[in-house]
Amino acid sequence: MISNKRITLGLIGLVVLIFVAYFLILQLSLSSTKNVPELLNSISSSAIDGDWQKASQLNSELNDVWKKNEYLIMINYSEAEFSVFEQTIARLEAAVKQNEEYETVKEAADALSLWQSFGKLVPKP
């Protein structure tokens, strides 16, 4: 007969294993895709240089990367953080389409800050 202590320890171990596995998968997924911070910085640089065609192309790549990772992010983070990031990406896309340097750089910086928070075990509020 298995004691209650062994069952409890087994369940705790299983929960810890699931927790560690999930965060490993999340980190591997975020790091194996195109580098989002690099894309955001390149979009800002292209806007500052006035190369709006390149900024638009990079923005399309960013949207592709986001679509591939949004479900993992959705599971781990609150609806508010997820929505704010989506809104920031949408505002970034609009700023690039309108060739607005200030807004493009600002939204790229905001998106970068949010993305870096997504990669942490305990994100900033």
Rank of each mutant, 00 (worst) to 15 (best):
Q53H: 15
A108D: 05
G50R: 04
I43V: 05
Q57A: 13
E93P: 09
L114S: 10
M74T: 10
A80R: 12
A55I: 07
K106T: 08
L72A: 11
N76A: 14
P37Y: 02
T88L: 04
W115P: 01
S56N: 13
L92R: 02
Y77H: 15
Q53Y: 09
K67L: 15
F118R: 04
V16T: 12
L28S: 11
K54H: 13
P37K: 02
E79A: 11
A21H: 05
Q98R: 10
E100F: 09
L14I: 11
V65F: 01
F23Q: 07
P37T: 05
Y71V: 13
W66D: 00
Q98P: 06
N99V: 01
A108N: 01
K67G: 10
E101K: 15
S45N: 08
L17G: 07
Y77G: 06
S117F: 01
F23H: 12
K34T: 12
L72V: 09
E103L: 12
L40D: 01
S44H: 00
A94Y: 03
A94Q: 12
S29A: 14
S117M: 07
V15N: 00
A90R: 09
L40Y: 00
F19P: 03
W115G: 03
E93Y: 14
E81T: 07
V105S: 02
S32Q: 06
Y102D: 11
Y71G: 09
S32I: 01
M74W: 10
D110Y: 08
V84W: 04
V16M: 09
E79R: 07
L17P: 01
A55F: 08
S46D: 03
R91Q: 12
K106L: 06
S46K: 02
K68Q: 08
E86A: 08
V96P: 08
E100V: 12
D49S: 15
L114A: 04
K68S: 12
Y77A: 03
T104P: 00
E81Q: 05
L40Q: 00
T33E: 10
S60G: 12
R91A: 13
Y77S: 07
E79M: 06
L39S: 03
S56G: 11
L62Y: 02
V16C: 04
D51R: 13
S113N: 10
A111Q: 05
Y22V: 09
D110S: 14
V16Q: 02
Q53T: 14
A80I: 10
K67I: 10
E103I: 08
W52F: 11
I25F: 14
S83E: 13
E81W: 01
L28F: 15
Y71C: 08
S29V: 03
S46Q: 05
F118S: 02
L112H: 05
A111S: 07
N59G: 12
I25R: 13
L58I: 01
S117T: 09
L112V: 00
L112A: 03
E86S: 14
L30T: 05
A47H: 00
W52D: 09
E81P: 00
L28K: 14
Q53N: 15
T88K: 08
V36S: 05
F85S: 02
E86G: 13
V96A: 06
W66F: 12
S42A: 14
L17K: 02
A21L: 03
P37H: 03
I25W: 09
N69S: 11
K106A: 06
